[in-house]
Amino acid sequence: MFMQVGFLYFCVLEDYFTGFTLHRKGWKSVYLYPKRPQFLGTATTNFNEASIQWTRWISGLTSVAISRFCPLICGPLKMSLVHLMCYLEVACMPLLYCLSIWGFALIPQLCLFNGIPLYPKISDSNFNIFSIIFISAISKSLYEVVTTGDQFRVWKNEWRIWMVRCVTCYTYGSLDAILDKLGMKEASFLPTNKVTDDEQVKLYEMGIFDFRAATMFLAPLVTVILVNFAAFVGAVFKALVVDDNGDRYWEKMFGQMFLSFYILVSNYAIIEGMIIRKDKASIPLSATLWSVVFSVFILVIGSVILC
């Protein structure tokens, strides 16, 4: 660890690590957010570059979380417990989020695909607990967006991109940091392109996703969509056609069916880019085919384990 021009370079996310170290030593910071912009900068302008940038950030956070500088281990000298918990939450968030979201995106769906209920029946009073937790999480994020002056559309996009990042950037970034910790590879620092492209700007202004990205970022997204689609369609078919007592099947599988349906609706842009759109910015056929292979593999392995 050494210092250059005021930053501590222990990981690829030097600003987080520098801030944590300075606050731990008693430095005080001020949140400056003037009405008149004080600085002018550029950001990534497409999905591929943004994913690369977020993967780098997540790698830096996870590398701190699993190192001797983890806020849980590197105790506070002059920091409050609440301040320490904030740093700990930020450092551990990527790894915990990617594991939990992958679990919610696949495990209930695999059980649904094989007719195994995980949640209480909709008529069971215990089902209200899961409903309250789900509604509370949605309401909290919506409240934060609205109270900061943004609109419902912003909340919808932020919620969707959070799920996208969890199965892509959070996963790859955490894996990159873990492999670096094990000595199997060095943490990567890939520069991002921030040059504005007129075609990308036009798509952005139209609210259309630009899916011209590496397959490593597209395949997990499409795979999750395909697994959820297969589980949801299979459950509906079984409830309407195969199962003689369809009402009871809907009742015991409603929680898992709703979860799959919610994931599909929230990520309709991915379905649109995969099936409906035919422009240059749609999801390439090669990424879709690879995702079909991955999703079939997941469904087969899940069925073998659960049956």
Rank of each mutant, 00 (worst) to 15 (best):
M163D: 05
V154M: 10
F209C: 08
V154H: 11
S139L: 09
T168C: 03
K202R: 08
S174T: 15
S139D: 00
T168F: 06
M163I: 00
E158D: 05
A213Q: 06
E186T: 12
K181S: 10
E158Q: 08
E199F: 13
V224C: 09
I133Q: 12
I208W: 08
F211D: 02
N228P: 08
P220S: 04
W159N: 08
W159V: 07
P120D: 03
E205N: 11
V227R: 11
L175Y: 14
V224M: 13
R212H: 03
S174G: 11
M163Y: 04
S136P: 00
L118A: 11
D150Y: 12
D197N: 09
S141Y: 12
F229K: 01
T168E: 03
I129A: 10
F189C: 06
I132D: 03
Y143V: 06
V167S: 03
L221K: 15
I132M: 14
L182H: 05
Q151F: 15
V145M: 07
V164F: 14
K181D: 07
K194C: 14
D180C: 15
K202D: 05
K185D: 02
I133D: 10
E144K: 09
M184P: 02
Y170N: 12
V146D: 05
Y170L: 14
L179I: 06
W155P: 01
F134V: 09
L226C: 04
V154Q: 12
E158F: 05
S188H: 09
W159K: 07
S188P: 00
I129T: 14
F211A: 06
F152I: 15
I129C: 03
S125M: 08
Y119G: 03
E144T: 08
S139P: 00
Y143W: 09
L203H: 07
S188W: 04
V164I: 05
V227G: 04
D210Y: 02
C166W: 06
V164L: 04
G183E: 10
F211Q: 04
M184T: 08
L142G: 00
E144C: 09
V195M: 11
D176W: 08
T215R: 11
L190E: 12
L203Y: 05
A219W: 05
T171H: 10
S125G: 02
K156M: 07
W159M: 09
L226D: 05
P191A: 01
N128K: 09
V195Q: 12
G183Y: 10
